[in-house]
Simulated scan of single mutants.
Amino acid sequence: MAPVGGTAVQDHVALAEIELCGELIIAASAASGERLSMESIDQVLRVGEENGD
């Protein structure tokens, strides 16, 4: 049930995690049945990049 009054709560961390999971799913499906390497996973998850927020 939606809150009365149009109040929406946004969890930016949860939204970012959902986006990254989606990107992993896309990368895994594009891998043509092969496992993603740790380097590929790090690249998809942008490990080591600075956060530009």
Rank of each mutant, 00 (worst) to 15 (best):
M1V: 14
M1Y: 09
A2R: 06
A2Y: 03
A2Q: 05
P3C: 00
P3M: 09
V4S: 03
V4Q: 06
V4I: 10
G5E: 04
G5F: 03
G6C: 02
T7Y: 06
T7P: 00
A8G: 00
A8V: 12
V9L: 13
V9K: 08
V9P: 00
V9C: 03
V9F: 08
Q10F: 13
Q10V: 15
Q10K: 12
Q10A: 09
D11K: 06
D11Y: 01
V13K: 03
V13F: 11
A14T: 13
A14L: 13
A14N: 05
A14Q: 10
A14E: 13
L15Y: 02
L15V: 04
L15E: 11
A16H: 06
A16S: 14
A16Y: 10
A16Q: 12
E17N: 14
I18D: 15
I18Y: 13
I18V: 14
E19S: 11
E19Y: 10
E19I: 08
E19W: 04
E19G: 03
L20H: 07
L20T: 05
L20P: 00
L20A: 09
C21Q: 08
C21E: 05
G22A: 02
G22L: 04
E23Q: 08
E23S: 01
E23F: 00
E23M: 01
L24F: 08
L24V: 04
I25L: 11
I25Q: 06
I25R: 13
I25E: 10
I26Y: 07
I26W: 07
A27H: 08
A27K: 09
A28Q: 11
A28F: 00
S29M: 06
S29F: 04
S29G: 07
A30N: 07
A30E: 13
A30Q: 14
A31N: 15
A31F: 06
A31T: 09
S32N: 12
S32I: 06
S32L: 03
G33I: 07
G33V: 07
G33S: 02
G33K: 06
G33H: 03
E34T: 15
E34R: 15
E34N: 02
R35Y: 09
R35G: 02
R35P: 10
L36F: 12
L36H: 14
L36K: 14
L36T: 15
L36Y: 15
S37H: 04
S37K: 07
M38E: 15
M38Y: 03
M38T: 13
M38G: 13
E39P: 01
E39I: 08
E39D: 15
E39R: 05
E39M: 05
S40P: 00
S40V: 12
S40M: 12
S40G: 11
S40Y: 01
I41F: 00
I41W: 01
D42I: 01
D42Y: 04
D42T: 01
Q43Y: 13
Q43D: 15
V44K: 09
V44R: 08
L45C: 12
L45M: 10
L45D: 00
R46V: 01
R46T: 02
R46K: 15
V47Y: 11
G48A: 12
G48F: 11
E49I: 05
E49G: 01
E49V: 05
E49T: 07
E49L: 12
E50C: 12
E50N: 12
E50K: 15
E50M: 15
N51A: 10
N51R: 14
G52C: 00
G52I: 09
D53R: 12
D53L: 05
D53A: 10
D53W: 10
